[in-house]
């Protein structure tokens, strides 16, 4: 009994690393650009399908392909912000939500046309099957590596935002874009950079997800909801909070899944809603 519960918690924590990866980009776009990208989950799924196609053609490991694609992911995020989303800045929340909503529908249905509705998965090689025996429980090496990758990525982003000059500029624009514009720190040039970084986190999340779980063109929204809940649970502006939020979501899902598949999602949502009632500002909000 204790072993089962311990196992559920450990596996839940590890999958929480994957959810944190989903959520990092969302956390950034919320914190810096102050918008919810409704297409966030769909863009991750889009990257997964791109990896599917490229690994199919090249025959390389999806991780290697993802590594090579990192600049492309940055570029896509940059272009998206610069040429589409930037047009909605300063016009309130409605246009940006609706534009990303339209984008979400376009990506979902575009993928459906291109790849069909079947579920897919990428092979990560032998590492997928490797396991470590830690006391009474087995821990998959791959989930553990994904979790560590999430930790490393957060540490990296934290250092980027808080230790570099460009990071300070991004935070300055996040604080007050109008003030930034007044002193010549053009927010319209900073936002695309931030969205490029979001693109990188999306690609990393996509590569980890596509090896770990099945995916199909329709799963973007459920990834968005999990990411969103992780961000709100953790508290806006706190990347480490987002990791904790992801872990809570993962553990809740794991306990729910002991009953059935719909309880898996229901448990996730209920934990989120309860937390919202008692701590709407999130667990680790930077005030």
């Amino acid at each position: 009994m204790v072993e089962t519960i311990l196992n559920l918690i450990v596996q839940g924590v590890l999958i929480g690393g994957l959810y944190a990866l989903f959520a990092l980009g969302l956390s950034l776009s919320l914190g810096v650009m102050r918008f919810v990208n409704i297409a966030h989950g769909d863009m991750i799924v889009l990257f997964s399908f791109v990896l599917l196609s490229l690994t199919g053609v090249l025959g390389w490991s999806p991780f290697l392909v993802a590594l090579i694609l990192l600049p492309v992911a940055f570029g896509l995020g940059w272009l998206l912000q610069r040429f589409l989303l930037q047009r909605t800045v300063g016009k309130g929340i409605l246009p940006i939500l609706l534009v990303t909503f339209g984008l979400s529908i376009i990506i979902q249905n575009g993928l459906l046309e291109a790849y069909g509705p079947n579920t897919r998965k990428l092979s990560g090689g032998a590492i997928e099957l490797a396991a470590l025996r830690l006391g009474p429980i087995d821990v998959g090496v791959y989930p553990l590596l994904v979790f560590l990758l999430a930790v490393a990525l957060i540490a990296g982003l934290d250092a980027f935002l808080y230790r570099t000059a460009i990071g300070a500029r991004i935070r300055a624009v996040a604080d007050d874009p109008a003030a930034a514009d007044l002193i010549g720190l053009t927010s319209a040039r900073i936002y695309p950079v931030a969205m490029g970084v979001v693109g990188i986190t999306m690609l990393v999340a996509a590569s980890c997800m596509s090896v770990w779980t099945n995916f199909d063109p329709s799963i973007g929204p459920s990834r968005l909801l999990a990411a969103f809940e992780a961000v709100v649970l953790g508290g806006l502006g706190s990347l480490w909070g987002t990791l904790i939020g992801g872990v809570i979501i993962g553990v809740a899902q794991n306990f729910g899944s002991q009953i059935d598949a719909s309880w898996q999602i229901l448990a996730q949502h209920l934990v989120f809603l309860v937390a919202l009632v008692f701590r709407p500002q999130g667990l680790f909000a930077r005030s």
Binding site: V36, L97, L224, L225, L266, H269, L276
Partner: peptide, 26 residues
């Protein structure tokens, strides 16, 4: 519950709420 979320967050909040209602209906 969901009015604790404001602006952009509220949009996703309504979505979560609908998802919960659907899962409970099932």
């Amino acid at each position: 519950v969901i009015f604790r979320l404001r602006t952009a967050y509220l949009a996703v909040g309504t979505w979560v709420a609908a998802d919960v209602l659907m899962l409970i209906a099932g």
